[in-house]
Design a protein around this nucleic acid. Structure first.
Lengths: 224, 224
DNA sequence: GGTGACAGATTGCCTGACAATCCTTCAATG
DNA sequence: CATTGAAGGATTGTCAGGCAATCTGTCACC
C-alpha cells in the first residue's frame, strides 16, 4: 500500500453530498416531519439543479426518511407508533443475533466495540443531545458489527437514522439525558459479557437494554 | 372495496418501471456481471431520458446489483466469494431469528408461509430454473415475514436479489434442480416445526438447511 | 350544506448542452 | 526494451429550460 486509505480520491458526487446534508438536517430534527420539500425552491437554495436534487431525494426515500406522494412531492417522513415498533424489531433481531454470535466474533470487531464504548463514556458528560445519541447508537452499531456483515450493518444504520428522526421529532431530550448514567452502566455490563464471549448473558443484557428503551419511547409516543 | 385493487391509480413512475425491468434482467442473468451499462445507449434503447435512467441505476446501486465507479459508469455487479458469505450471513441471522420467534408469529404470517410452501410444491416439477429459485426464496421470505418487520423483509429481499445474481452468474442450474426433492423435504419439516411453534427445532432445521446451501454455493464459487 | 368545475401550483419527464474526468493509444526518452 | 509523458476520444456529471399531467384549494351553483 503506497498511500493511506483516506487518500482514496473518492470525490463524492454532488447528489451524494446533497443527500448527506439533507439526511443530517432531517435526523437532527431541523426539518419538522410533514414539511414539504419543494424541488425548485430547495434546489435553488442548495445551489444544485433539480435532477441532482431529485436523485438525493430518491436516496432519502429509500432510507425511509422522506415520503413520496405521486405528483405531490416529497415530505419529511412522520414516523408513527408502528414504525417505532418496526425499528426496535430490527434492533432486537440484529443486536441479539450479534450478541449470540460473540463467540465467533473477530478480535478487531471486539476492539472496535471497546473503542466505541470509550467514546460514549468520554462524551457522556456533554450536554449536546445529538452527539450523545450518536455515540450511543455507534456503540450499538459496533455490537451489530460483530456479525461481520456489511449488509446488516447498512440495515442497522438505516434503522438508526429512523430512530434519530423519531427521537428528535418528539423532542426526547430531557428523558434521554436523565437516563444517561443508567445506560452507561448497562453498556459496561454488555461490553463485559461480550468480551468475555458469554453469549447467553450478553444476549439477555442486550435484550433487556433495548426493551427498556423501546417501552420508554413507546410511552412517549402514546402520550404524543 | 369499490374498485379492484389493480385500479389503485398508483401509476408507477417511469424510473421505477425502468429499475424493475433492469433488476429482473440482471438477476435473471441476461446481463453478464461486469458489463457496462452506458447511459445514453441504454436510455435510448429503453426510450427514456438520461436523468430517468440515472435514477433507476441509483436505485439498483443501493441494492448492490450494480457497481458505480466515479466518472466511469455503472457495471453489473460481479459478486465474489465474500459477498456470498455476507449474503448467507444475512439469511442465517434473519431466518434463524424468525424461526426462534415463531411462537409470537401471527396466524396470518403462518398462513402465508403455508401458502408459499404450497406454491413451491406446485411448481417444483417444472424445469424453469428461474421460477423454481423464485418460489424457493419466496418460501424463505415468508419465514422472515414471521418477524413482522417490513424493514427486515426489505433487507431479505435485497439479499435474495444478490443471491439470484450469484446463482445465475455461475449457472447453477443443474445442481440446484437435482437437489429439488431433498430441499422440498427439508421445507416440509421446517414448515411443520414452525406451525407447531416449536422454536428450537425450527431454528435447528433452518440453520442446517441454509448451511447445506451455503457450502454448496461456496464450493461452486471456489471451483469457478 | 353538499357538489361540481376552474385556477394555481407542483411534480414528472424530456431535450439539449457543456465541462470534467477517465481510459486508451502512441510517440518520445532513458 | 521498458518507462514515462501527452494528446485524443468517449463517457459521465451537472445544469438550464420547457411542456404536459396531476393534485389541491377555492368558489359558484344546485
Amino acid at each position: 500500500m503506497l498511500l493511506p486509505s483516506t487518500t482514496t480520491l473518492r470525490r463524492s458526487s454532488t447528489s451524494d453530498d446533497v443527500a448527506a446534508l439533507l439526511r443530517n438536517t432531517i435526523v437532527a430534527g431541523q426539518l419538522a416531519p410533514g414539511t414539504q420539500l419543494r424541488e425548485v425552491a430547495l434546489a435553488a437554495e442548495l445551489g444544485v439543479s433539480r435532477p441532482t436534487l431529485r436523485e438525493a431525494l430518491r436516496s432519502l426515500e429509500r432510507d425511509g426518511l422522506v415520503m413520496h406522494r405521486a405528483n405531490r412531492g416529497v415530505f419529511v417522513a412522520s414516523l408513527g407508533a408502528e414504525d417505532v415498533e418496526d425499528l426496535y424489531r430490527v434492533r432486537v433481531v440484529l443486536e441479539a443475533s450479534a450478541a449470540r454470535a460473540c463467540a465467533e466474533a473477530t478480535d478487531d470487531a471486539l476492539a472496535a466495540l471497546r473503542a466505541a464504548f470509550e467514546e460514549v463514556h468520554g462524551s457522556w458528560g456533554g450536554d449536546d443531545l445529538g452527539r450523545l445519541v450518536d455515540t450511543d447508537l455507534r456503540f450499538h452499531a459496533a455490537i451489530v458489527a460483530l456479525l461481520g456483515s456489511p449488509r446488516l450493518d447498512a440495515t442497522f444504520a438505516a434503522a438508526c437514522d429512523g430512530l434519530r428522526l423519531c427521537l428528535s421529532a418528539i423532542g426526547a431530550s430531557t428523558p434521554h439525558v436523565a437516563r444517561g448514567p443508567a445506560a452507561l452502566e448497562q453498556h459496561r455490563a454488555i461490553l463485559a459479557a461480550l468480551t468475555a464471549r458469554d453469549a447467553e448473558r450478553a444476549e439477555r443484557l442486550v435484550l433487556r437494554h433495548i426493551e427498556v428503551n423501546r417501552s420508554r419511547i413507546a410511552r412517549l409516543f402514546a402520550g404524543a
